[in-house]
Design a protein around this nucleic acid. Structure first.
Length: 807
DNA sequence: AACGGTCAGTAGTAT
DNA sequence: ACTACTGACCGTTAC
């Protein structure tokens, strides 16, 4: 049994799993925190803001601090809630390194899985979680790397063997298959080499987090596109379907580039309700639903002596006659009942998934539901939405169309979850005019300047709209830029074709088109060269993506605390073009200074430095290189892009695009899949060091990885202040007693988290990741022995290091 | 039409 | 008691 998704919801009896890998998170029984009042320091619970509580690094702990460790109770007594109360005897702090003491039952419980994983080449390295000696960090990483390579070779053999067995069953084209296999293998190896392989070790952990999920999905998308591109350029054999999605998925699976490998009941760390997916393999790789095809995923759970299957997740894809009339209720059909060979229907049996659902009905455990639906923008494709946790209410058998027995299950969505599937329905209704969007100020703020309307919406406050500006959809240069080179326009009258090496536009892009057939950017480039006005290809050419105007239904909306923002009604695929940055190009003066108006908050500045972006491999240098620096002001006029806010964990990035015989443009593309109604943000970057920052602004992105308010950054600040005994160290206001709602005891991390009302439980995994020992080791080059942190959250999280840094 | 992960069953191997 | 292997199962995806 893994960690429960819902905090403190001990709905399923604990089974057997390596407990050292499982976070132990549960709310304490006592909600009133006990704060120390060291002499000479104001009490934390006092109404006015208190200074940072400074504790000498020389241990053990100063008087008044020890009451902060009521949660450090021996593991055995954790099963007994009575023993773990606030008033129980205070133990001395346990160093962090000791929490991983292997337990025998943990090993025994995971034996079956463990062996399977070994077989699949997914090595659970003996030291991959032994954070122990940090001075060997480099060596550890090195050994991790070499082991990784070894495992890859292992699986390579397995793969070949498999290929042979397939050859037996299939006739013809086996040579073709193998050569292309090798091609793709080499391609994939090349591709993976460009990544930081040590990252994969972290990702492989059984408990994922937002960052790992993002990373895995990104690698999958890139690899799949690589495969697609490779197939694209080869002449296709008709009748032979290549499945780049499956190939990429299989490869990452075999290399262990995946998260949440152990199945679990309930929520999956790093995956939020409303997240969208475009391939079944993506759902597999992030551990949301492990079956690549089957609709029901289940695991066996120990009950006393025997085991029984329990459903963990289902995919409702509409191929069975599922009923989804009501957004919060789902009538789900059981699996099976079809003889694949001759497509004959027969009675479904109470086995496998059907049996698991039946058992889950009786156990009452949560089941994750993923809803699949047709993608309206892409007729062949499907989109999957994670719709959160459901509970099975009843089951029955009915006669299907063919007259055979079909199992039916009624699932009801758990309350208190953010909207997901119902939101899709609302959006569809808005689009079709069945219902109208609440709070619409203007149905189209572009006044028809774009191909699609952009609504202006405020359902938050009474603000009537943004300050006046002129809407225009493209970039305006002050004076014509003389083209430096003779134009090399292409002659592709029918549009540029991927394999056409005579096309000069393809040549300039390094021999391959930058976009896929669906208009998705293949990879980040320092410069994308599109066809321009002098090219002979039509406007719908695949190499003119950023010129075709809006393809996504956008709205400008009022945010709660960040002015106006931009979001989309449509789901957005990773790599999709969103819009360009329209505005007026500001000329640079001779000394390089740019006449930027300090009050102009609608500036795009290409010289700002972005954090190393992990958007694309091989280009982690941060900001893209431009032929010349570009500064755009959209204060007086521009397009939707001027409303896009900043985030330190953005979902959109910018890409310089030059159109043949024309000017440089800035185009925005989606970094990852973006669900409908999620705010679109990009990284504004930071001003180049050495230059005076016009006016430092507070970052409001609220991201856990915020550069400015980044909890890790915050933490390092605190640690630094602490180590240097900085008396001014002061980290925000102290929460008052009535502000505090919950205290989470995370004993496996030696961490106590004090949460304000606004703190959301789903942040916990991310917070914990931020404080994982790996993060510490990365930042400080060693493992802290005993760290104790109190965190509380308003919109952002602030952390206090209160005691126990015995370095 | 062809693809891949998971499960369950079975044959084989080690203790 | 554990491991390795195999085939059935289950729908998805692009053509």
């Amino acid at each position: 049994m893994e960690q429960q998704g819902g905090l403190g919801s001990e709905s399923v009896a604990s089974g057997s799993v390596d407990k050292s890998r499982v976070l132990n998170i549960r709310p304490l029984r006592c909600l009133v925190p006990i704060f120390p009042s060291p002499p000479g320091m104001s009490s934390i619970s006092s109404p006015q803001a208190s200074p940072f509580v400074c504790v000498p690094p020389t241990g053990p702990f100063p008087p008044g601090v020890s009451p902060f460790f009521p949660f450090l109770i021996p593991n055995e007594s954790q099963q007994n809630p009575q023993a773990g109360g606030f008033n129980s005897t205070i133990q001395s702090p346990v160093p962090i390194t000791s929490y991983r003491t292997p337990t025998s039952n943990g090993n025994a419980g995971s034996s079956r899985r463990g062996s399977k994983n070994r077989k699949a080449g997914i090595h659970s390295q003996p030291n991959d979680d032994g954070y122990g000696d940090s001075q060997n960090q480099g060596d550890q990483y090195l050994s991790g790397f070499s082991m990784h390579v070894a495992s890859a070779e292992d699986t390579g053999k397995v793969g070949r063997k498999r290929g042979n067995s397939q050859r037996k069953t299939r006739s013809g084209r086996e040579i073709n298959t193998t050569t292309s296999d090798i091609d793709l293998d080499a391609l994939a190896n090349d591709f993976l080499q460009s990544f930081d392989l040590t990252r994969f070790d972290t990702i492989r952990r059984s408990d994922g987090d937002r960052e790992s999920v993002r990373y895995v999905l990104m690698i999958y998308t890139l690899l799949r596109r690589r495969f697609t591109q490779a197939e694209d350029s080869k002449e296709s054999t008709p009748g032979v379907t290549r499945r780049p999605d499956l190939r990429a998925g299989a490869l990452l699976m075999s290399k262990g580039i995946r998260t949440n490998m152990t199945k679990r009941v309930g929520a999956v760390p790093g995956i939020e309700v409303g997240d969208i997916f475009f391939f079944r393999m993506e759902i597999c790789l992030v551990g949301l639903h492990a079956q690549s095809m089957a609709g029901i995923d289940y695991m066996s759970l120990k009950v006393g002596l025997d085991e029984e299957p329990v459903a963990v997740s289902i995919v409702s894809s509409g191929s069975y006659e599922d009923n989804d009339e009501d957004g919060d209720v789902l009538i789900y059909s059981g699996q099976g009942g079809v003889l694949r060979k001759d497509n004959v229907m027969m009675d479904q049996k109470l086995e496998r998934g059907n049996l698991a659902l039946e058992k889950s009905l009786h156990r009452g455990n949560d089941v994750r539901v993923i809803r699949g639906m047709r993608d309206e923008t892409n007729a062949t494709g499907k989109i999957y939405v994670y719709d959160g946790l459901y509970n099975i209410q009843e089951s029955w058998v009915e006669k299907g169309k063919s007259g055979c027995n079909v199992f039916k299950y009624k699932l009801v969505r758990a309350a208190g979850q953010p909207e997901a599937f119902t939101l899709w329905k609302s959006v569809r209704n808005w689009k079709e005019g069945i219902s109208s969007r609440v709070g619409v100020i203007l149905p189209d703020l572009t006044s028809g300047a774009e191909s699609l309307p952009v609504s202006l919406v405020n359902d938050v406050d009474h603000e009537k709209g943004p300050a006046y500006f002129t809407y225009f959809p493209t970039l305006k240069y002050p004076k014509p830029v003389s083209s430096q080179q003779p134009s090399l326009s292409c002659l592709c009258r029918g549009g540029c074709q991927p394999g056409d090496l005579n096309c000069s536009c393809i040549q300039k892009n390094g021999g391959a088109l930058a976009y896929t057939s669906l208009g998705v950017l293949l990879s980040f480039k320092s410069l994308v060269r599109e066809c321009g006005p002098s090219c002979l290809c039509p406007p719908n050419c695949r190499n003119r993506i950023s010129q075709a105007g809006l393809k996504i239904r956008l709205e400008v909306f009022r945010t709660k605390d960040r002015g106006w923002g931009l979001r989309s009604w449509d789901p957005i695929r990773a790599g999709c073009f969103i819009c360009e940055y329209a505005g007026e190009v500001i000329a640079k003066s001779m000394d390089g200074e740019i006449g930027i108006d300090n009050d102009d908050s609608y500036i795009f500045d290409s010289t700002r430095i972005c954090e190393p972006r992990e958007v694309m491999p091989g280009n982690s240098a941060g900001s893209p290189k431009l032929p010349f620096p570009l500064v755009i002001s959209a204060k007086n006029g521009g397009n939707v892009a001027r409303f896009m806010n900043h985030s330190c964990t953005p979902n959109v990035y910018w890409q310089p695009v030059v159109r043949e015989g024309s000017y440089l443009h800035i185009a925005f593309f989606a970094i990852n899949h973006i669900p409908p109604m999620k705010e679109l943000t990009y990284d504004y970057g930071t001003i180049h060091p050495g230059k005076a920052e016009p006016r430092r602004k507070k970052c409001l992105c609220g991201s856990l990885r915020c550069r400015v308010d980044f909890c890790g950054g915050m933490l390092s600040m605190i640690v630094d202040a602490y180590l240097f005994k900085c008396p001014e160290a002061r980290v925000g206001k102290v929460p008052s007693r009535e502000d505090i709602v919950k205290i989470y005891d995370i004993s496996s991390f030696d961490l106590l988290l004090v949460a304000r009302k606004s703190f959301r439980a789903e942040w916990l995994p991310s917070v914990l990741t931020a404080f994982s020992q790996a993060a510490w080791r990365y930042r400080y080059g060693r493992t802290p022995n005993s760290v104790f942190i109190v965190a509380y959250g308003l919109r952002k999280l602030m952390f206090w290091l209160l005691a126990g840094l015995s370095m």
